[in-house]
Structures are given as structure tokens and as C-alpha cells.
Design a protein around this nucleic acid. Structure first.
Lengths: 348, 348
DNA sequence: GCGCGCTTTGTTAGCGCTAACATCGGCATT
DNA sequence: AATGCCGATGTTAGCGCTAACAAAGCGCGC
């Protein structure tokens, strides 16, 4: 009997339902049931109905592992993001995951904590699942990761960054440009003693690019900016406080501060208020990220809003297009430049 | 030639590296290489060294899909959470994912948006990957999901809830008890005109349990609480504002409000301040969740802090123990009751 | 010298599914 | 009637790995 269920390794024990069970029951061959799931239009309506009925009756769930092995492409997409619990990447993740699952793809996830080594080990583990695509955050990777993504024959997407020279699919924005925008904005509002507060998380290279765009633009505009670097081991909120206290304790104090992210900015805001400053009169505060709390603070926080959700959705769309799941007129767009929006609130 | 690489389906095309490639190169049989990865202690040190060398040289990455199929248990764990971008579950997710990946397990993720139907479809899709374990949030599922988890022969964990009567592994806390704690606390502080503001997200059954514990306890204490239900379509922050405006616009106003979560509470706080109330003198505000912004608000928000990260870590630990990956003296503990901590800040 | 148990290694036979090719019947064309 | 074509379905042979069993090698006691 070719389809005797010897059941060596199956989980349930007593006769797990497989494609063959369904096929026999429906009086068709296994491949027809397979087609019913994967290319239903190739199966005649009568058989389709019959198979549907049997599937429902038996509660058959296709074994995607076996399918993935046989076809060498599982319906799984792997993603590495710096951290899950932070408010920024979470939105990207949400948009990505939702868009994918709408098309029957599953999400395999790991976080790197801004460490290229952790990213590499996550990528290595993922590739063993032969995912249909791989999504990373930013363009900064270890040599090992670069090697793997160069050799892997699947769509690779880099999010949250934009570098025309690089090869992979990109969906993101230019962090340098964010710095430029912030500088122009603060300068345009008349501020002239301007500081930048760096992220306390080492490895956040993107924040450094915002700094570079910021300082370069201010220098062009004839203003020499401060750059404050908090202690590396502080939590962002504390680091922001530290920065504000240190900057405002000098003899010459800044009249505007651009913080590398909203957590830092919130710390700065609170420290300023506790010190009796009035914001933005004594010192304006600009953040980055538009975290959920930005409108809840008093004064509400002006900030640059990254297109987080949009990045996730668009990244998923490009992946699905590359896989041919989603239709596209022309070639899949490799470079996808989105923009941050300046949200002007009370703190500037 | 038994191991001729015909390469029908492999991705790379020209001679993808498989177990057999490594085995031949190292002069051993395939199963020895397999053991090198899965039970290295069964392989002699000399062969281990030889295999390690070949693996490094060829850049071999084990195909986990094939391994999963052959052994009927992939090193993958599936998790469904209500939403990824919210601040609460994100911490659980982070703790879970990190603990798992430390032991070589991968995380398959989907979100349900508090919809039992979406949860069901996610679970169905997951089971096709024959995950080693399945983790859900709360005890409220559709009948279909209940059926699947009853039949699936893998560890099932329910997080963020605690119901001794239920069968699956549980790692969470009692939402009812949270309501009790909040009620006792506010009553103990001397407040007597007390309101509860419900979550605007339908489907968040846990919030309703907090309400029940809260109202029952107050009734016991001889206080009749208000329950305010915001419009269902409002974002939480707005719903909180609406609640505060409505409650404080009455002839008899509450002197304390327990909001179903911190987003609502933040909205309430802001609406109160805009209306010229002084908090907590005119009206105390208590939240739930200890979202990152709670200490950043003015006044800072008193709230109940759920053990989010701890839940994630402990859930992963119990999963790994159930799978025999992590040692445990006795049987794996089925009920794991954790507790919320009351964080007293300025708003009460 | 022989049998015993132990560790290390190998052989065989699939796991459940799908790619590739083969087949078959129906229908239009010549 | 013979020919070609097309869509629907079936047959065969794996995908890359591991469970189960088999065998070989080794030390030990009697």
C-alpha cells in the first residue's frame, strides 16, 4: 500500500490527516488536492467542491513544512529589527506583519538591539528556514551578514534607510536629510545657539547620521552647534535629563536643542521644567520619532515623525511584488524614498 | 550515485551545500553530521573537529525545514498577541523572543487586534508549520481555536491571564485582582466618588474583568461606582479626554477615576488640565499599564504596572521546560501567577 | 577465549508535500 | 477520419534531513 500511514514521526499518533487522507477520501490523487490549495484555478469546479467538503470534514491543515521542503520556498518572511518594544519599530513591524499575513505569509522575527553580531546570528538562523524574503533595518551590517545576503537568492529589503548606491531593495528615508530639516527649521525660527543631544544607545548609527546632517547644515548657515553625548549606560529618558541639566548649567546656554529621539527629548523637557525653565521661551526642544506620548506632554513635543507604519506596509508590498504574489506593471521599485514630517507643537 | 545533486528545487542553483556535501567532504556519513548539530556529545572529538572545519569552510547552513519535516518538530514557536505596536505586549514579546532565541528557537508572530477570529486564522496558519509550542494572549478564544489547541499535541501557553480552572499552561496575573487592588487603594486614600472608564477597544475582555473586580470591591466597601463607556470608535487618548469632560461636566463629579489603561488616563489627565482642574486635588487619576510615558507626564501618572517582560520570559521558560530543553526538577508548573505592582506617583 | 555491555558510526526508510513529466479525453481543424 | 492542441488529472521521483535499527569496535570480567 503506497499510502499506508506508518506514522513514525507524526505528532498526533493515531492517523494524522495528510494530503493523502484527503485525496483518498475525495477520490482524487494527492497532487490534485495540492493544486486545490496552490493553483485552484487548475482544478475543475466539481472536484474543488468535493475537496473543500472533505477538507472541512477532516479538519485538514496543510503541512507547510513539507510543502516548503518540496518547493524550496516556504511562505515565510524573516525580519530583524533593532528592538521590538520601542515605539518606532513596533509600528513598522505591525504594518509589515499585517500586510504579509493578508497574503498568507508568516512572519519570523528576531531583534538585534542595534548589534550587528546579533543581527548576523539571527540572519543565519533564519536562512535555515529558507524564507521567501529577508527584511533588515538600516544598511549597517557585519561582513558575515553582507556575505549571507549577497549569496542568498531571495529578495532582501533594508528598511529605515536610504542609500542609492546600495544594491538591496530599500524602503526608508534619509536620516541625514532629517538632520538637515531639523537644522533649517530651528534656524528659520530664529534660534542661533543650538545643540544636538546624541542617543545613549551605542550602535544606533542612524542617529549619528541625523547628527551629521544637522551639524553640517548649521555650519553652512553660519552657526556652530554643540554636540552633547550622554553617558552610554543611561536609559534614554535619564540621558535626556542629564543633557538638559548639563547644557543649561553652562555660562552660555543653548536656545534650542535637537534630541536624537523623543525619549531623550521628554527627559530634557521634564528636567527643564523642574529647573524652572519655560519652554520654548528659554529653550526650544525638538525631538525625533513622534512617539505616542509626544502630544501628551506639557508643553506638547515638536518632533519629526518618521513614516514607520508606511515603511512596514511598503516593505511588505515590495516583498510580495518581488515574489510575484502582488501584481506590478513594471519592475519592482528598488529605491523607495519616504519622508519624515515635521510636527510642530508647543515645545518649539 | 546516491548523493548526486540533481538540484531540482534548490534555490542557489549550482550545488547548494547540504548535509551530504559536508559528510562527503569530512569523510563521514550524513547522520554523523546531523548528530554533530543535534547531539554533539555523541560524536567523537576528532570527528567533531573535522566536521566543524568543513562546516566553516563550506559555509554550511542546516536546512531547518527539512529537519523539521523529518523530526516532526521544528525549532519554532508561534505566538499571537493582540497588537504589536502597543507598549504593553511589546515588552512581553521582547522577553519571550529573546529567551527563545537564546536557545535556538525561532519566533513566528501574528497579531489579533483583540479579535478572536483573527486569532483563529493565525493559529490555523501557524499549525501548518508544526511549531514546537503555541503561545496565546488571554483565555478568550473562538470555538475553532479551542478545538485546535485541544487537538494540537504541543505545549499551549496562555499569557496575561490567570484562571486556575483552565487547562493550558498559564503565565499571567488576575485582571480581576487588579480591579480589587485599584478599588482598595483609591478607597483607602479617602476617595468616595469613584468612576471607572472603560476601554474603547471592543474585544478587550481583560479590561472588563478589571472593571468587574473594581466595581464589586467598591460596592462591598459601600461605594457605588460610575462606569463610563466612551464611544467605541475613538482612539484611546481621545476616549480618555471624552470621559474626563463628560464626567466632570456633571452636577456631581467623581473625586477619583480609574482608567482601563494609561492611554485613556493620559487623555483624561490632559483634558482635566485644559479644563483648569488640579490633579489630584479636584480629581485623582489612576491608570493601568505603566506605559513608558507615565513618569513623563505632569503630574506623573499613578498606575498599576503589569509584569509584562516577566510574563514573556517566564512563558518562554515554561515552553522550553515543557520541551525538555531547559531542565526542571519536577513537573512543569502549569499555573504561574504573577502580580501587578501599584506605582504611586503624583496623579493620586 | 568468550560473552557482555557500552559507545560510536552507519544503513535504510521514510516525513508530507510538490516539480516535472506523462496521460487522457474532448474538441476544433484539415 | 486523422491530426493537433488544450485543459484536467495522474505517476514518479525526489526536497534535505532524522528516527529506528544494525553493526562494529572496545574494554572488562570470568
Amino acid at each position: 500500500m503506497p499510502w499506508t500511514n506508518t506514522n513514525r514521526a507524526s505528532a498526533g499518533g493515531a492517523g494524522r490527516v495528510t494530503l493523502n487522507t484527503v485525496a483518498r477520501q475525495a477520490g482524487v490523487s494527492a497532487i490534485t488536492v495540492s493544486r486545490y490549495f496552490n493553483q485552484p484555478e487548475q482544478v475543475s469546479p466539481e472536484r474543488r467542491a468535493r475537496i473543500a467538503q472533505v477538507v472541512a470534514q477532516l479538519g485538514y491543515v496543510p503541512n507547510l513544512v513539507a510543502g516548503g521542503l518540496a518547493s524550496a520556498r516556504g511562505k515565510i518572511v524573516a525580519m530583524v529589527i533593532p528592538n521590538i518594544s520601542g515605539p518606532i519599530f513596533a509600528n513598522t513591524l505591525q504594518g509589515f506583519s499585517d500586510t504579509l499575513s493578508r497574503h498568507g505569509y508568516q512572519l519570523l522575527l528576531a531583534s538585534s538591539y542595534f548589534s550587528v553580531e546579533q543581527e548576523e546570528s539571527a540572519v543565519r538562523a533564519f536562512l535555515g528556514w529558507s524564507p521567501a524574503a529577508l527584511v533588515l533595518t538600516s544598511r549597517f551590517h557585519s561582513p558575515g551578514t553582507e556575505k549571507m545576503i549577497a549569496e542568498a537568492d531571495i529578495p532582501i529589503v533594508e528598511t529605515w534607510d536610504y542609500v542609492p548606491e546600495r544594491a538591496p531593495l530599500q524602503v526608508g528615508f534619509s536620516h541625514y536629510e532629517v538632520g538637515v530639516t531639523a537644522a533649517r527649521y530651528l534656524h528659520g525660527k530664529g534660534y542661533r545657539r543650538i545643540a544636538f543631544v546624541q542617543n545613549s544607545a551605542v550602535g544606533d548609527f542612524s542617529a549619528l547620521e541625523r547628527r551629521d546632517g544637522f551639524t553640517a547644515t548649521l555650519t553652512e548657515l553660519g552657526v556652530q552647534p554643540w554636540v552633547f553625548v550622554p553617558d552610554a549606560d543611561r536609559a534614554p529618558f535619564d540621558a535626556g535629563k542629564q543633557a538638559m541639566e548639563a547644557l543649561m548649567g553652562q555660562t552660555v546656554t543653548p536656545d534650542a536643542i535637537f534630541f536624537a529621539n523623543d525619549n531623550l527629548a521628554a527627559g530634557g523637557l521634564l528636567a527643564g521644567q523642574r529647573a524652572g525653565l519655560s519652554i520654548p521661551q528659554d529653550c526650544a526642544v525638538l525631538g525625533f520619532g513622534d512617539y505616542p506620548f509626544a502630544p501628551m506632554l506639557l508643553p506638547s513635543l515638536s518632533t519629526l515623525q518618521p513614516p514607520a507604519l508606511e515603511i512596514g506596509v511598503l516593505a511588505a508590498t515590495r516583498v510580495l511584488q518581488s515574489l510575484g504574489v502582488l501584481a506590478t506593471d513594471e519592475e519592482v521599485k528598488r529605491l523607495n524614498l519616504l519622508h519624515c514630517q515635521l510636527i510642530e507643537r508647543e515645545s518649539t
